[in-house]
Write a protein that binds this DNA or RNA. Structure first.
Lengths: 210, 210
DNA sequence: GCAATACAGTAACAATTGTTACAAAGCTTA
DNA sequence: TAAGCTTTGTAACAATTGTTACTGTATTGC
């Protein structure tokens, strides 16, 4: 494990911290679609992402959901940090967007490392910062964009995350992420196809224009 | 100044830190409506709020805006923290919602205090946490609520912040906060009045039901 | 191959929100 | 008090988004 952590986090953390991570962390390989965090559950570990991507969603009381942001290599989940520090229940849902490798850190270490390592402190601050910015960018999308532009942005985000121009998903799944209905997504995708921006296949969308 | 800081922040910070705040901080009284932070400007101080309330808004490139959250006594602006640490330009706008007293801390102190004082570290973490939660709650409103419920929630938030059931504002101002048009707000307010939830006057809305 | 299921296309219609336009009422200031 | 500005009320209409219903076409499992 130490090699992969060092490779991805070596520029951020000092050797001593890397060694501690190696000692207490648990390496995990998560398959695409696996639900890492359920709303309402307590969180005992925080994930350091080595490779792959995690999709973080908000879910309301009716089970309606909305995509908040993606986490990638080098990221951690600020909501997890929050929950850990406050010992709150999770208010979000996290699902592996692609096959993902990560290291689980027991939350007891959080406090200690925050005091002990400046690099860890900076990492945690910068994670909060990134997540706050991304959450606000999500607000930008919902508040200032129409559904067609939100859809296009979503498709572009997905290609960026998966490093391919072909998105394997259904219209229904996109509708869940953007909190709208399948019919609306099908309608707008068809419009995008007519404009030559995408090519639609079953379970699969090719993004042509970037 | 020290007295007011001690009164509002004494339970959070140790005496030594309070003394430092007293030394380097600048006490300010801000009138309602004053623009504290403009989007695009650089931030050199972070505010610790003693009393009153600050309204924090997101503004897009077209000048469209949307209310993100309110800051109250004991709060600081996490976006400011972010900007300070990253030396980024402000991505938000902040306006005094009521007359407000606050202490401005030069950002150079941030780093030092984060290393030196555990209480400061916890304060910063908990500020980030609060702001992240509130930003996500704003997403809940925009994504899951219709405009009538968003309006009602907004009115309730305003009464909570100003500690009075009478809101002094115009329909246009509410429309700006919720990023919709004045006509829409007038229409929905009228509906609320017919339901007996509010009483409408010029420049002033009384919230009857809570 | 066949039935069951999942996925996508489309039409028709409803609900919500946004826009334009104009009138009336209240406040401000000369 | 008259003129001018701000604020609110309202109607009529447009655009966007949501809903229901039905069709056809892949895909899966037997």
């Amino acid at each position: 494990m130490i090699k992969e952590i060092k490779y991805k986090y070596g520029h951020l953390f000092e050797d001593e911290l890397l060694e501690e991570i190696n000692q207490v962390g648990t390496f995990k390989e998560i398959p695409e679609g696996f639900e890492l965090i359920k709303p309402g559950s307590y969180i005992k570990y925080m994930p350091l992402i080595i490779s792959g991507a995690i999709k973080v969603l908000r879910e309301d009381h009716d089970g309606d959901e909305l995509l908040l942001y993606f986490l990638e290599q080098g990221d951690t989940c600020a909501m997890t940090l929050s929950c850990c520090l406050g010992h709150h229940k999770s208010e979000i849902k996290a699902i592996a967007e692609t096959d993902t490798k990560l290291v689980m850190i027991p939350i007891e270490k959080m406090e200690a490392w925050t005091t002990k390592y400046k690099s860890w402190r900076n990492f945690v601050f910068s994670s909060y910062h990134k997540r706050l910015i991304e959450t606000i960018e999500t607000i930008d999308s919902i508040a200032f964009l129409n559904m067609d532009d939100r859809l296009l942005k979503h498709l572009k985000d997905k290609t960026k995350i998966s490093h391919t121009k072909t998105i394997n998903t259904t219209h229904q799944q996109i509708a869940y992420d953007l909190h709208t209905s399948r019919v609306v997504i099908s309608r707008l995708l068809k419009k995008l196809e007519k404009k030559g921006v995408v090519k639609l296949n079953r379970n699969n969308i090719e993004v042509l224009e970037m």
